[in-house]
């Protein structure tokens, strides 16, 4: 294990699952640190080397949410949640607590590695700020507030622009409805959750090639949205 390898902590109490995750990570060139309990996971994270924490929410010694809260008080390392498909509430709570993404069990290794790579890339890039973004044939210049497609300017309202900016700033990350409402409309507007649906719809109309099957502004059903460039 060389020092240049990316460190990933795998907090999962099921040894078989832990094993294949660690195997896959190592084949992908990461250094994996298995942890069977939350305590071990936190101790491992405290070394400060980790670029990612993969966390199963059903741990025997600590509630997954408490783990995230604890970790977030002193670390900004990305957290990938492993969760059951039907547990939307659990996912939302974990994301609101500071987790970055989730993966539904059972998952294939391909899905796992795609998420892991995206989160690690985000982690390394987090220090850099790009005013220019590009996805599909759309270009966004946050510096000059210009959105254009194939060189042709697209007019966005203030709220649409703000929503797009929040999505771009969190590219690849799942944003819960509540988080987006708070970022775009400010605190105390959560009872107007339908605003978000309408504005996302308008943004898709303007930016997506097929708004019914969006390629960039993706719906995470029951949880929120994810921007994918």
């Amino acid at each position: 294990m060389s020092e240049t390898q990316t460190h990933v902590i795998v907090v999962e109490d099921e040894p078989q699952i832990r094993r294949f995750i660690c195997d896959a990570l190592q084949r992908d060139g990461c250094a994996s640190f298995p942890a069977g309990t939350a305590r071990q996971g936190l101790d491992e994270a405290a070394t400060g080397k980790a670029a990612l924490v993969i966390l199963d929410l059903g741990l025997p010694d600590m509630d997954g949410l408490d783990f995230i809260h604890n970790l977030r008080t002193w670390s900004a390392v990305p957290i990938l949640i492993l969760s059951a498909r039907s547990a939307e509430r659990e996912k939302i709570a974990a994301l609101d607590a500071g987790a970055d993404d989730y993966l539904c069990k059972p998952f294939g290794i391909g899905e796992l590695l795609a998420r892991v790579r995206a989160l690690i890339r985000r982690h390394w890039q987090s220090g850099e700020n790009h005013p220019q973004h590009r996805f599909g044939d759309v270009e966004v210049d946050l510096l000059r507030h210009i959105v254009s497609r194939n060189g042709e300017e697209i007019h966005l309202t203030q709220i649409e622009y703000r929503l797009l900016a929040v999505l771009l700033a969190n590219s690849g990350k799942v944003l819960t409805h509540r988080h987006l409402m708070h970022e775009v409309w400010g605190p105390g507007r959560s009872e107007q959750a339908h605003y978000l649906r309408i504005y996302v719809g308008r943004l898709r109309q303007k930016l997506e090639i097929d708004p019914a099957q969006p390629q960039h502004i993706l719906t995470e059903t029951g949880v929120g949205y994810r921007f994918q460039s």
Binding site: E14, Q16, I17, F20, I21, D23, A24, G58, A84, S86, K105, P106, F107, G108, I109, G110, L112
Partner: peptide
């Protein structure tokens, strides 16, 4: 749901491995 899903998750992952 948890007890049945866990071995299935292992199966899928190990088969991929």
């Amino acid at each position: 749901s948890h007890d049945l899903r866990t071995p299935l998750t292992s199966l899928v992952g190990l088969a991929d491995t």
